[in-house]
Design a protein around this nucleic acid. Structure first.
Lengths: 246, 246
DNA sequence: CTATACAGTGAACGATGTTCACGGTCAAAC
DNA sequence: GTTTGACCGTGAACATCGTTCACTGTATAG
């Protein structure tokens, strides 16, 4: 690591007093690797969201010219693939086998949501791909294992996986911190919105005027928890069809 | 509609034989309106998806220079807003009051999905916005009305709305016809994928090897219908908590 | 010691969203 | 009936983006 470049200054090493070559900068050469690309890209995303990630920004952050990135990554799309896999690797897939399958799946969904919301804009990318990267497959396995072990029929287990996985992704996707565009977040505009909803013509929007404030409430956590519960209780109802009518 | 421009050629109308002014082209002036922008943009999206919609492409389609669009639309983002509202207007919101609230909501969700999938890429846009456009509000009303009429408690009705609406959007978002990037669609690659799933190490991916083929099956319609059913039966279970225990 | 594969450079290409001074046309005001 | 002014589209430019490519130096293998 601390190997000096004697040939950098010229021939011998007889005059380091007058011109010391920039030691640190030499190390940067050859150290640009795929892992560093992904790591730095994730850092950019964590601060500025996925829209702040441009090849040029990433390159300058790595002290490199934009074209250099294409030695390690075929395209930006491929970089996205690597990033997504790296993000999914952060999800703790360990299951507590003493819990119900429902509880296991619920816990996993919560962890997935947490990781996704730590990387603003990532969920949107994930939605455009089939989960076939290494850590995607591992995550799918982690979701499917409890369902399989619980004895759900094959098709039903697959449907349950899709339902839970897709819903979690979709929920994380609508995180207001990611695009920060047109979503309500600060309480002031929310109050303004509530006032607007109340002011709607009650004959044309009876349900909205009555329920609007609850629909646009600031309760993302409650919504996720409750929805997940609803969803899984629906699955359970299908699993053991007691009074299965219709 | 058929009003000729007498002054176009110069002073009088005495010599249409020798130089006929390009009648059709004159009409193009002053006829560029917000509605035409949106309509033509939707046409572009229907053919090439949302990624094919660039301001330049839209402008040339309208026989106009790119900058001209900004007389009618403040930005592309605003154009998206108009497009989304126009798409949501296509959803038939009429309810059949002889049906259960569950059946009404289900039918509406199906219609929403159908409209969204007719405009590839639109669902992704919709997810980044709060549904506050005129037709968004009307659609929300259409979803909320049956829930409200059924006597669901306010918070529960709001949660139910979010659950169904978000799920439908998320489902339409993962339509393989939209981004046509990295998703499995043709049967050949699907068979290849199934073979790959079977070839996974069975000790590390027991559930995936067993259920993988069902997870990546070609059954979008079945998945949507079944998921919606599951989801609503979960809502019903919460509505009348018979044996509600945990 | 020489040859070769390779990583990073610098510059360019094409496409994107957006802005702005300019000119022409239509409709209202005097 | 002439003039004024608002408005709409033009043409050209700017900044930024992803991506490509000939070139150059370095490190490693023969």
């Amino acid at each position: 690591m601390a190997d000096q470049q004697h040939t950098a200054g010229g021939s011998g090493g007889s005059r380091p007093l007058w011109f010391t070559p920039p030691d640190g900068e030499q190390d940067r050469r050859r150290t640009l690797t795929r892992e560093r690309l992904v790591a730095e890209a994730l850092a950019v995303i964590s601060t500025g969201g996925v829209e702040a990630l441009s090849m040029r920004a990433l390159a300058t952050r790595l002290g490199v010219v934009p074209g250099a990135l294409y030695r390690h990554v075929r395209s930006k799309e491929q970089l996205y693939d690597l990033i997504l896999d790296s993000v999914l690797a952060e999800v703790d897939r360990q299951a507590d086998h003493s819990l119900t399958w429902a509880a296991q799946v619920t816990a996993l969904a919560h962890r997935l949501r947490a990781v996704l919301e730590q990387h603003p804009g990532i969920a949107a990318l994930l939605k455009t791909r089939d989960p076939l990267s290494p850590h995607s497959l591992a995550l799918a396995e982690a979701f499917l294992a409890p369902l399989h072990a619980a004895g759900l029929p094959e098709r039903q287990a697959a449907l349950a996986f899709h339902l839970i996985y897709d819903y979690t992704l979709g929920f994380a996707l609508s995180d207001p911190t990611s695009p920060s565009e047109q979503r309500i977040q600060d309480p002031a505009t929310r109050r303004e919105l509530h006032a607007f909803l109340r002011s709607l013509p009650i004959d044309r929007f009876p349900a909205l005027t009555a329920l609007g404030e609850h629909v646009w409430a600031d309760n993302r956590d409650e919504r996720f928890t409750s929805s997940l519960h609803t969803l899984i209780s629906g699955l359970q109802a299908a699993h053991r069809p007691h009074q299965a009518g219709q």
